[in-house]
C-alpha cells in the first residue's frame, strides 16, 4: 500500500513537471530556430523584405509599441475609474452584474472582436477621420477591449484589498469620499495597479488575431508617423507570413526570431509583474 502511495506521488510530480518541460521545450526549439536570424541588424534594420532577405524589424517593433501603449492607455482611462466605481460605490448586485459581464468579455473569441473592428471601427474611422481606416487607432480600440476586463478585475482586487480602517480614518478626518479615494485608497493600491498595467502590456504584446485584423499589415512596414497609419505588430507578422515562409529558409528563421523576441518580452513583463505584486504582498 505504501508503495502504491509513493508511486502515485511520483506520477503526480511528473504531471506537475510537464508544464516546466513544455516551457523548456518551447525555449529550446524557439532558440534553435530563431537565434541564427537574431542580429543587431535584425533589431535595428528598417527594411523587412523577405524576398530580398532583408529582415529588419525596427518598424514592426515600433508599430507594436505604438499599438500597445495607446491601447493600455485607453484601457486605463476606462478601466481604473470602473474599478473604483465597483469597489467604492457600486451596490452589491450592480457589482455582480458588471463583474460577470466584464468577465464574459475575457472569453469572447478575439477573432470575433477583430471582425467587429473590421466591420464597424475601420469604416467608421475611414469615413469620419480619414485614412484607410485600417490603422493604429483601430488597433488601439480593439486591443483596449481585449485587455480591459483583466485590468478592471485586477485593479478592483487591489482596491478592495486596502484595509477598511484606512477609509474610516480618512473619512473621520473630514475628507470627502473622493478625497479618500484619490489620496488614500488609490495610492495604497498603487503597486497592485502597477502590476495590473504591466500584465496588461504583456497581454497586449502577445495578442494576435483582433489586432491583426484591423491594422492593415502593409507589405513593407514603415515607422508610423500618425495614428491613422497602417502598421504591423510582432504577432501579426508571424501569423501572416508563416505559411509563405519555406521551411528552413532565412525567412522562417526570421519569423522564429520574432517569436524569441516576443517570448523574452512577455516573460520579462510577467516576471516584473509577479515581482511587483509579491513585493506588495510582503
Amino acid at each position: 500500500m505504501m508503495k502504491l502511495e509513493s508511486l502515485i506521488e511520483k506520477a503526480l510530480f511528473l504531471s506537475a513537471s510537464f508544464s516546466a518541460l513544455i516551457v523548456f521545450l518551447i525555449t529550446f526549439f524557439l532558440i534553435r530556430e530563431g537565434v541564427p536570424a537574431l542580429s543587431l541588424n535584425f533589431l535595428t534594420g528598417l527594411e523587412w523584405r523577405p524576398g530580398q532577405e532583408f529582415f529588419g524589424t525596427l518598424p514592426t517593433i515600433i508599430g507594436t509599441l505604438w499599438v500597445v501603449i495607446g491601447a493600455v492607455f485607453i484601457a486605463l482611462l476606462i478601466g481604473v475609474p470602473t474599478a473604483i466605481y465597483l469597489s467604492e460605490f457600486a451596490p452589491f448586485w450592480v457589482r455582480n452584474i458588471i463583474k460577470s459581464s466584464v468577465e464574459v468579455i475575457v472569453g469572447i473569441p478575439s477573432v470575433v472582436i477583430g471582425f467587429f473592428g473590421l466591420m464597424i471601427l475601420v469604416p467608421f474611422i475611414r469615413n469620419t477621420i480619414g485614412g484607410r481606416g485600417e490603422s493604429i487607432l483601430a488597433g488601439w480600440i480593439v486591443l483596449a477591449i481585449m485587455i480591459l476586463p483583466n485590468l478592471i478585475s485586477l485593479t478592483e482586487d487591489s482596491l478592495r484589498a486596502v484595509p477598511k480602517s484606512y477609509r474610516e480614518a480618512s473619512l473621520a478626518l473630514g475628507a470627502t469620499q473622493w478625497q479618500t479615494i484619490t489620496k488614500v485608497i488609490v495610492p495604497a493600491a498603487s503597486s497592485g495597479i502597477r502590476a495590473a498595467i504591466v500584465l496588461g502590456v504583456g497581454r497586449a504584446i502577445g495578442e494576435t488575431m483582433a489586432v491583426l485584423m484591423v491594422i492593415g499589415n502593409p507589405e513593407t512596414p514603415w515607422i508610423p508617423t500618425s495614428i491613422l497609419d497602417m502598421t504591423r505588430t510582432l504577432t501579426s507578422t508571424i501569423a501572416i507570413e508563416f505559411s509563405y515562409a519555406e521551411w528552413g529558409s532565412p525567412h522562417q528563421h526570421a519569423l522564429f526570431a520574432i517569436g524569441v523576441v516576443l517570448f523574452l518580452l512577455v516573460t520579462a513583463l510577467n516576471f516584473v509583474a509577479t515581482f511587483v505584486i509579491r513585493r506588495n504582498k510582503n
Binding site: G206, T235, L269
Partner: peptide, 8 residues
Amino acid sequence: LAGMPSIV
C-alpha cells in the same frame, strides 16, 4: 506558460 502569447 500561462503568460505565453498564443502565437508563440
